[in-house]
Each structure stands twice: as structure tokens, then as C-alpha cells.
Design a binder for these strands. Structure first.
Lengths: 211, 211
DNA sequence: GCTTGACATGTCAGTCCTTACATGTCACTT
DNA sequence: AAGTGACATGTAAGGACTGACATGTCAAGC
């Protein structure tokens, strides 16, 4: 389809192959469980994605299937070709930094709320960060040599950063409440912010917040 | 369709409404530009998503359209109903923490590589974090009262955390190279890691790395 | 014997999202 | 006058993904 054809949109493949490579042969069900636990920090996928993908990868020779009698279990094992694909993706593929985070979106839109509501929202986010962080930190893999240790540490570092952000933001919001008493965002529905609408501003004003 | 119906899968709607609310009336083109710059830190969307979504939202009464003659421009403005929707989403919607990050996936799979390759990968990730962070930090919105300041600070905090992770990981990988000389992961294709395949291990071993 | 719940695998409708294609305007330069 | 490039809006094919539905096995407890 595309001119790249390779290394685009194959993260699910890679995640499955990586799990099979790291932990040995497994069934689709096992892999689905792994997406809920060990790899949840890096990628998510449900069984409705996993089962068809395993069939495709078997057809492509990236994994080998073996039907085990008990409970219709089908055991998948990575092939040398599959192992090669994971490694070349890791070494060659520059990951995209595309952001799509509901949390960041709420942070972005925070100034739309008045002070009290904003504080409530940040408190809820803080609680969420805290719970997530606790869930990560109690895993035994962190200091040991468990397989997911690098991703786990990254998740913990970013969770702590988010928690610090929440604390700083709460402090600023409460600070703004003590003096002034008008929150910075509720002084009007449409502050003159060098808007997007180029039609109602003169030329040359569109450089605000540029990347 | 679903039993929730509301507040699910509407992040794009919310992002568009939030931009219109914050910055005033704008065209689809303007909004697409905003997704490349100001809000890129929180959500991404191309114009092929934005134009149809604006049409839908206009039909739902969340935005009002006004055709401006010049260059077929269509100016969209948020309606009171749209503004209500953004605020209720912000206050009521608990964001999902669903992770789907190629960077985290590479971190997760790092132990599959031998030491030299792993170092190369982490160096590349570090460079990427560094560039991204520089791009964020040079924006004038950080300390000022620009609209996206909260999301920007969150992005910077998480970027710094990622950078620190890269430095720590590099240090560990290089440390492991000085003594031992066999990298922790290349001592065999299949270390006994309490695998996923329940069929080849006794019962009770599946608690490793559980969530 | 029967129920319950974990195990195990799948399909399907519908939505989301990306890539590629398609069209036309306007300002500026050559 | 023609070309270039930013402006501006769309459509369509196809893959990715979710949620709901569907089916059946097996072990443990009542």
C-alpha cells in the first residue's frame, strides 16, 4: 500500500513477537494476559486484535503454531525470521512521538475552567497518577533483572514527573486564589490571546505559540 | 451505540471545541495548524479528520458555521452548548491511562538486544527526547500565561524524566559492559524467566510480573 | 448433577485514523 | 503571462481498534 510498506504500523506485531521472544511459546490467551500486566506500561491490545494478528503472522512465517489438545489451546512460537524482524525494528525504527493523551488534553484545556473546578480536576488527575505510580512501584521487577525493567522504570519516572506537575499546578492555582480573587481564565469567555482566526486580526500576528 | 454513549471517544471533538473556546472563531485550516503547534503536545489530528468532524459538530449544534467569502474560508465558532460540553467533559470525564507508545515499546524490548545495539538504541532515544524537549522549552508560553501552559509544563516535565531515564539506562548498560562482559540478555535466546506458556511449567508459577 | 467461573478462541459491526488523491484560490515572483 | 507556494477544503480506500456477540472446555464447589 504505502511506499514504506515496512516498519509502519507494526507495533502490535512487534509487541507480540517481542513477548514470544522474551518469554517463550505462548497462546493468544497468554499474550492477551501479558498485555494486561507486564507490557501494559508500553502497549495495550485486546484479544480481538491479538487472535487475528497471530493468524496473519503465522501465514507470514513470523511465528509457528502448534495446536495443543487441551482446551483448544494453540501455542505460538517465534521463528528465526520473526526474531530478526523484532531486532531490526528495534535498531532501525525511529519511533514517532505522536501524542494522543486524554490527560494532556485535560491539562491543556484547564484554563477554560474557573479556579475551583480546575483544582478539582487536577486533584483527580493527581489521584490517578498516584494510583498508577503505586501500581508500578510495587512490582518486583524494578530493581531486579526482570524483562520489562527498562520500560517500567521509564513509566515510573514519567509518573513521578506527572505527580510533580500536579503538585506544582495545584500550588499555582491556590496561589492565584489568595490574591486577585479572579481566576486568570474566568475574566471573560474570550481573552485577546492572538487568536487563530486570521480574518479578524492584522497580518503578522499568527506567530504566537508556534512550534 | 454503547451504554455510555456520552464522553467516550470524543477527544477530537473536545480538542476542537477547546481550541475554538480558547482562541475564538477559526477555520478548519487554522485548527489543523493549531494541532501542529500549540496543542501538538496533547493531541494530534490531520485536516482529513478535522473537516468532517467540524461538519458533524455543526449538525449537532456544538459549533456555528459562517462562510467567509475569501478563499472558501469557513469560520467555525463554538456555541454555548459546545462550551457546556467541553466543561462537563473536563469536570466529569476520568481520562483513560491507556498507553500506546512506540518509545515505551522499544524500552520494553531493549533486553532483546545485545549491549552495543541497546546502547545505540538508547542513544537515539536520548537524542529524540532532547530535541523534543528543546522544542518545548523554547516556547514563550512556559512561564507566561499562554493558554497551553499547563500541558506544556507537563510535557517538559515528562521529557526531562525521559531524558533522565535514558542517562540512567546508558550508565547501567555501560556498567554491565565493564565487568562480566556478557550482556545480561544475550546469554541465551530463552532464559528461564517464569514464562507465559503455562503448559510447560507447573502450576503456581504465573505470578511473575503480575499487575 | 448442576452451577459458577476461569480458560480459550473466535466473528462482526461500526468507528477511528492515515494515506493518497483531488480541486480550487490567492499573492508574489519571474 | 506563467509558475510557485501557501492557503483552503474536501473524498475515498483501507487498515487499526473497540465493544458486543458467540461458542465451547474444564475444574471446583454445592
Amino acid at each position: 500500500m504505502s511506499s514504506l510498506g515496512y516498519a509502519v504500523r507494526m507495533s502490535l506485531k512487534i509487541a507480540l513477537l517481542g513477548l514470544l521472544d522474551a518469554k517463550g511459546p505462548a497462546s493468544g490467551y497468554d499474550l492477551a494476559k501479558a498485555f494486561e500486566s507486564s507490557i501494559s506500561n508500553a502497549w495495550q491490545a485486546g484479544h480481538t486484535q491479538i487472535y487475528p494478528e497471530l493468524v496473519k503472522m503465522a501465514a507470514d512465517g513470523l511465528v509457528a503454531v502448534e495446536s495443543e489438545g487441551a482446551r483448544n489451546r494453540k501455542i505460538y512460537a517465534i521463528t528465526p525470521e520473526g526474531a530478526r524482524l523484532v531486532r531490526s525494528w528495534l535498531i532501525e525504527h525511529q519511533p514517532t512521538a505522536a501524542m494522543r493523551s486524554e490527560v494532556a488534553l485535560q491539562a491543556f484545556l484547564l484554563p477554560l475552567l474557573d479556579r475551583e473546578d480546575a483544582i478539582e480536576v487536577v486533584l483527580r488527575l493527581r489521584r490517578q497518577f498516584s494510583e498508577r505510580l503505586a501500581g508500578l512501584e510495587c512490582r518486583p521487577v524494578v530493581k531486579a533483572s526482570g524483562f520489562g525493567r527498562y520500560a517500567l522504570r521509564l513509566g515510573i519516572a514519567q509518573g513521578r514527573a506527572a505527580l510533580d506537575w500536579a503538585d506544582d499546578t495545584l500550588a499555582e492555582l491556590r496561589e492565584a486564589g489568595r490574591d486577585g480573587e479572579g481566576s486568570p481564565a474566568e475574566t471573560g469567555p474570550r481573552p485577546p490571546e492572538a487568536g487563530l482566526g486570521a480574518s479578524e486580526a492584522g497580518p503578522g500576528t499568527s506567530a504566537a505559540e508556534g512550534e
